[in-house]
Each structure stands twice: as structure tokens, then as C-alpha cells.
């Protein structure tokens, strides 16, 4: 009798988008999607899926359900966790649940989790690579009144409890909690596995469940923001680099050192 895991994921703009292709529309305060660069599942959320799959590898897991709240989902992108080995995918999709603040997102995810019903462990990536707040998972925990452990680099489940190694800048903490609990996962856990052909085939045969916000009682009042974006802009830098050249690359290296000595930086 294994545990049931829910993994919360977010579809985001690809963070590998080159800086030169990153543009903001000042009228709408939105990022203009770069041409030809599809969105991705948030990187840290893939680490969370990987964490779930490692627990499944050790035989502790009955089911991994992946959930997401947003709009304009690209199915190829959102099915990747299924291709990696997760069992089912539930998407809450609507214009009214795109661009939510952390509180509203956490509320929407908490409602979705309650809709799923049975769970022992909720895993999330530590933060989303667009807004970088690291808030939603904690909000889900507070709203569902569950213990919350952030920055997991290692997770072990045994006897109805979880032991987490939390990443510190120099070292780690060991934190224990009883299940059910919410845990956020960091990249120190290790690289997410690549989907294999079998996984991709299995995923292609699965149909995600699509829910609308009204299915979950999510109305405008409940989703009203507590933090509102007023301006989004790309900071302008007037810095101009001084490129040091030489007769060849080795000479350039030498001249660089001499230049830095001139400026008393060495």
C-alpha cells in the first residue's frame, strides 16, 4: 500500500530564452512571447516530478497525479511529466486563472487538490522561473493546513512520515514531518530524467482531465489579487565593456592582466 503524490507544475516561458529575445510590452505589462521558442514546464517543477519518480522507483508510490492551473496550455509541453512517468494530468484552464498572484494561484491549486481528494504528499518546484517568488507551495500548505518543508535536495518516505534534506548555502538541514505534507524541491536533487520512448508512447495514450474554474468554485472574488503588478520593464544599462585585444589570445590574456593592474584591480 503505497502513497499518493500530487505534483504541482506551471507552464512558463523558456528561461533559456536569450536575453536579446526577451521583450516587454509596456502597455500591457506583459512579456512578448519570443517567436519560435515554445514554453516549458518550470524547471524546478521537473525536479519535483523527478523527486516523485525516485520515490516510485523505490516502490513506495501508488500514483503520481500532476496538476496545473493556467491558460493556453501546450499539450506537448504539459504531457512531459507523463512521459517522464507520472500517472495522470489534471489541468485547470481558463483566461480567469492566468496571471494570478501567488495567493490566488495557491487557492486554485488547493481547490484542485481537494478535488483530487486522496493524497499523502504534495510536491512543488521551489519557485517558478517567471515570477521567482517561491510562494505558491507555501500558500497551498497554509490553506490546506499541512506541514511545509522547502528546498528539498533529498526526500525519503517511511512509516507515514517524510525525512527531507533541506539545501543550505553551506550544507543542509534534516527536517522530519508526518504525512500528509507539502515539500518544495530544488535543483540540488539532481537532473530530471529524460522521457524514454515507452514513456512517450504511454503519455500519448493518456488524456488530461481539463477542469474549468467554476467546476472548483473559483470565482472572481476568491481570485482577486493581494499583490498587483503596476509596472514591468527591462532595466537599461549604460555600461560599455572595454574589450582587450592582443596579437593572439595568449597575448590578450597578458594585456588584460596589465590593464587590470593599471586600474589597481590587481
Amino acid at each position: 500500500m503505497g502513497i499518493k503524490i500530487i505534483v504541482c507544475v506551471k507552464q512558463v516561458m523558456d528561461p533559456e530564452t536569450p536575453a536579446s529575445a526577451f521583450k516587454v510590452d509596456p502597455d500591457s505589462n506583459k512579456v512578448i512571447p519570443a517567436q519560435g521558442i515554445p514554453p516549458v514546464v518550470n524547471g524546478f517543477d521537473e525536479n519535483a516530478v523527478e523527486a516523485a519518480l525516485r520515490l516510485k522507483d523505490s516502490g513506495d508510490v501508488d500514483k503520481i497525479t500532476v496538476i496545473s492551473v493556467g491558460n493556453n496550455f501546450v499539450m506537448d509541453v504539459m504531457k512531459k511529466p507523463l512521459s517522464m512517468g507520472a500517472d495522470e494530468l489534471i489541468l485547470v484552464q481558463d483566461e480567469s486563472v492566468s496571471d494570478l498572484d501567488a495567493f490566488a494561484t495557491a487557492t486554485a491549486l488547493a481547490k484542485t487538490i481537494e478535488h483530487v481528494g486522496e493524497y499523502d504528499l504534495i510536491l512543488c518546484g521551489r519557485q517558478a522561473s517567471d515570477w521567482d517568488q517561491a510562494h505558491v507551495a507555501m500558500g497551498v500548505a497554509e490553506l490546506l493546513n499541512l506541514p511545509c518543508i522547502s528546498l528539498a535536495q533529498k526526500l525519503d518516505v517511511a512509516d507515514g512520515g517524510i525525512t527531507v534534506q533541506r539545501s543550505l548555502t553551506d550544507g543542509y538541514e534534516v527536517v522530519e514531518a508526518k504525512l500528509p505534507a507539502v515539500v518544495t524541491v530544488s535543483n540540488e536533487l539532481g537532473e530530471p530524467r529524460y522521457p524514454n520512448l515507452r514513456g512517450i508512447m504511454q503519455a500519448s495514450r493518456k488524456t488530461p482531465t481539463i477542469l474549468s474554474p467554476s467546476d472548483l468554485g473559483l470565482d472572481a472574488d476568491v481570485l482577486a489579487p493581494k499583490l498587483a503588478l503596476t509596472e514591468l520593464f527591462i532595466p537599461v544599462s549604460d555600461k560599455k565593456v572595454e574589450i582587450i585585444e592582443g596579437e593572439n589570445e595568449a597575448d590578450a590574456g597578458r594585456k588584460l592582466a596589465l590593464r587590470l593592474r593599471e586600474e589597481k584591480l590587481i
Binding site: E242, A252, G253
Partner: peptide, 22 residues
């Protein structure tokens, strides 16, 4: 775009003489 000084080149060629000079 963020650097004050830079060398465009293969570090394997640039760095040894940089270290030596430093």
C-alpha cells in the same frame, strides 16, 4: 553587457598567460 573588461577568446589560450602575468 555587464562586464567592465573582457577578452573574446578561448579561455584555454587566454587564461594561462593571464595567470602568469598576474
Amino acid at each position: 553587457k555587464a562586464a567592465t573588461y573582457g577578452v573574446v577568446g578561448d579561455w584555454k589560450n587566454v587564461l594561462p598567460s593571464f595567470i602568469e602575468t598576474v
